[in-house]
Design a protein around this nucleic acid. Structure first.
Lengths: 364, 364
DNA sequence: CTTTAGCACTCCAGACCCTTGAGTGCTAAC
DNA sequence: GTTAGCACTCAAGGGTCTGGAGTGCTAAAG
């Protein structure tokens, strides 16, 4: 309970640092030689033994070195590691990879996922949020050909979803436009979660058309609106994990991949609010959530850690991004990357939202 | 060169069947006992030795059983295996899983991929084709808010793509509608590959607006049209491969997953036309392409086979679907599944295209 | 000429043992 | 409180051995 003294802290940090690098249990002698500790191996041994009893380290078996426990990683993440600012070349490279498509949220998130995975070397996920709280801005129905139409739903957050639907053969383009306008007029500005089929129908009725024509269309409009609320998950780089020693046993690798393939499992995790784990707001006041090992209570993902954060525009949630790696991941690097990506996205979106300044030199 | 005699054929078939099931090298004695061959192990031994010299079988090492060579699998696939019709419960189950979203091609393909992977137990891919040959049907630009618009591109094949773009602040909704109409009037009916920026500009000019306003919009319209041509790849179930004995060595598993993660690699393969490998058009005249082992010349995918087919509506290519598994995959089962999925999709699309009959009882 | 039984030979896989080296905990001296 | 010394532990790697499945060859039988 009493906080660790300075020497214990630095030894714990050294152990975690080394273990992150080598994935091998760390012994006292090795530790002394790799770090300029001004004490002997025996002293370190005593300290390590203490740290083990305190629950920060564990031994795979007697007569092996020590590896960090979940608690050890937690301490490391919360107060020992030093998060560096990304070198500016890397910042530039990430910025340029994210630069395109800022106007399409799902593209941004897909890109972010890809960037995070390749720049950290771990698996990344990104997710669009449920948008129940979002306001409907527009809904347009366009004729494609007799019997088919496309419904375009635009939300306040700038999110656009479309969907092809069937409509009655008899419906012509002008009539459809009229219905479309009526629905939009009636629903625009409402929160998605408040839009019911009844509301849609009421709005559509204003078009003053026979119900026989209307019913199907309005139902499809309703479904389209509801579907706009669905979230999508992007995942990248799960194959990278096979390169790490912790996944050399096929069983582990398989458990991991099976867990990730489980539809929606990860989504549930990302969906949860980030409660701001680290109380000391470091270089960046960080709404990160870092879950370590058992803290992720998902079968197959023990042995992993999960760093997530959320992108927001003011109060509204725009998306969540995260990195999954072995517990032994390079937390500092991951946090820098994920933080930088988040800020880049937030900035990009904000810029887009507030006052559309005349198109800047949009690189190619 | 001379075709195999009947006994050799049945022994080869037996070996491949057994190996597909057990993944263990097959010995003469075992073979005799598992199949009701009316000859002694010694005879089988002689035949197997012949088959080895003819290149159909190979031995991992002296004094092990035999396993099929690529040539052996090829013979098996081309003329030995018997493709069963799917049991009707399975047909129903697949049909119902595919039933939704028939109006949205990309949804259909995504679904198909998921169905194929879960029903065969292997990895599946599906791909929308490049659509250069497709005709532009509609292009609509809708105002979202000052400075932002959504462009909806509809192709003749019934494919709909949208994209959010920036437009000049000054542009109002009616003006945009006018431009939109002009562009559509000028381009509708053209093949995607024939649409150039010049063509778009020429069409847009008819709206009689100052170039300063037009230029940006027309450029965005052009980009949107070009993007409609992009293909997308859906892949599912790559994690399933870790369950197979051939991927127990992490190296293999990693090579496989790395290869699949390589953006576009698989796409290239799927994109190639299916030249109808099997000359004898079996129960179904099959435009299958089956590539076995080395025939897939991709690093990491040796040891695998790849069964693909294409969905078409008449002459136009709608998409490709395929299954990737170990060379030792259950070809017969895969072919039945993939064939059934293809036919179900083709039927569904055709039904949608030709005469839209009044909406049938749409389940749910 | 084809098929089969018999036999010697090969080779992998698994069990077992041994050695080595890194690491520990404990004790006693500094 | 720190350190040197020492006995002890244990996993990993390398060797040897054995059992079993399978082969190829030969010679006899059909």
């Amino acid at each position: 309970m009493t906080p660790l003294d300075e020497r214990k802290r630095s030894i714990l940090k050294a152990v975690v640092d080394d273990y992150i690098e080598t994935a091998e249990p760390i012994g006292s002698k090795q530790l002394v030689s790799r770090h300029a500790l001004s004490v002997s191996p025996a002293t370190v041994r005593n300290e390590m033994s203490d740290l083990e009893h305190l629950g920060y380290l564990e031994q795979p078996h007697t007569s092996a070195g020590r590896i960090p426990s979940d608690k050890g990683y937690r301490e490391y993440v919360d107060s020992l590691m030093r998060v560096e600012v990304l070198p500016s070349e890397e910042q530039d490279s990430i910025r340029s990879r994210l630069a395109d498509h800022f106007d399409e949220l799902s593209e941004v998130l897909r890109n972010a996922s890809s960037v995070l995975s390749s720049s950290t070397g771990y698996t990344s996920v990104a997710m669009t949020p449920r948008l129940r709280q979002s306001h409907l801005k527009q809904i347009k129905m366009l004729m494609i050909e007799p019997g088919r139409a496309v419904v375009v739903v635009v939300l306040a957050a700038g999110i656009v979803k479309d969907r092809v639907v069937r409509i009655p053969e008899l419906m012509d383009a002008e009539t459809l436009a009229k219905v479309s306008a009526a629905v939009e007029a009636g629903l625009s500005g409402m929160k998605l979660e408040d839009i019911t089929l009844i509301a849609v129908t009421a709005a559509g009725r204003r078009a003053k058309l026979p119900d026989s024509l209307l019913n199907q269309i309005l139902y499809e409009a309703y479904i389209s609106i509801k579907q706009a609320d669905s979230m999508s998950v992007y995942m990248e780089g799960s194959h990278r994990m096979l390169g790490f020693p912790e996944f050399q046993e096929i069983r582990k690798a398989r458990g991991f991949l099976d867990a990730l393939a489980e539809e929606g499992l990860i989504a549930g995790y990302l969906a949860e609010e980030a409660p701001g784990t680290s109380e000391d707001a470091d270089a960046e006041k960080s709404p990160y959530m870092i879950r370590i090992g058992q803290e992720i209570a998902l079968e197959g993902l023990d042995g992993c850690s999960f760093v997530t954060t959320t992108c927001r525009d003011g109060a509204t949630l725009l998306g969540s991004i995260g990195v999954i790696g072995p517990k032994r991941m390079d937390y500092s690097n991951v946090v820098s990357h994920i933080g930088f990506v988040r800020r880049t996205i937030d900035d990009g979106i904000r810029q887009l939202m507030e006052g559309h300044r005349p198109t800047e030199d949009r690189a190619r």
